[in-house]
């Protein structure tokens, strides 16, 4: 939701403890940009640093912001997004996704990964699209599921 009607997507990164998060976030950002959707990444400092280091020339990453600053802007009605992708591998991730689902008008996608992806998916009791795969080091199970959900993957086949 920008002034020139460019679609925007918020990507919420949780604790970067599970390796697939950064790789999948870059892949997602790439796909969104190919669709003409402007991605804004919000995350912990460590999660953002991993993105910065992985994409030093900013081929994929555009705007990045602090997790709490993003929540603050949405609750303060200063900003909102068309889409929101929340990376979840622990209980805190579910809590953040539930918060965004409540405060934002964005269509929310809960991307669950890690050892306990399926169990965590069972904890989701709010409106959102759930994409869950037991992916820890290898991003492919989550990538395949995300590809099924996202239009750009369909249009490229």
């Amino acid at each position: 939701m920008t002034e020139n009607d460019e679609k925007t997507a918020l990507i919420l990164l949780g604790c970067p403890q599970v390796p697939v998060q950064t790789s999948m976030a870059l892949y997602l950002v790439h796909g969104l940009r190919q669709q003409g959707i402007r991605p804004v990444i919000a995350g912990t400092q460590a999660a953002r640093k991993l993105m910065e280091v992985a994409d030093p020339d900013r081929h994929y990453v555009l705007e990045m912001t602090d997790l709490d600053a993003a929540i603050d802007e949405i609750t303060g009605k200063q900003r909102d997004f068309d889409l929101c992708f929340v990376f979840i591998h622990n209980d805190s991730g579910v809590a953040y996704a539930g918060t965004v689902a409540y405060i934002s008008k964005a269509r929310v996608y809960a991307l669950l990964f890690g050892e306990h992806a399926e169990e965590l998916a069972g904890e989701i009791e709010f409106p959102c699209e759930v994409v869950a795969a037991k992916a820890v080091h290898n991003p492919m199970p989550l990538k395949r599921k995300l590809d099924k959900v996202m239009q750009w993957a369909v249009s490229k086949r």
Binding site: T75, S92, V94, A95, T99, Y102, I103
Partner: peptide, 13 residues
């Protein structure tokens, strides 16, 4: 969710 106490947002479902 998002309710603010001091400068902290309450996060959760």
């Amino acid at each position: 969710p998002g309710y603010k106490i001091h400068d902290v947002h309450i996060i959760g479902v």
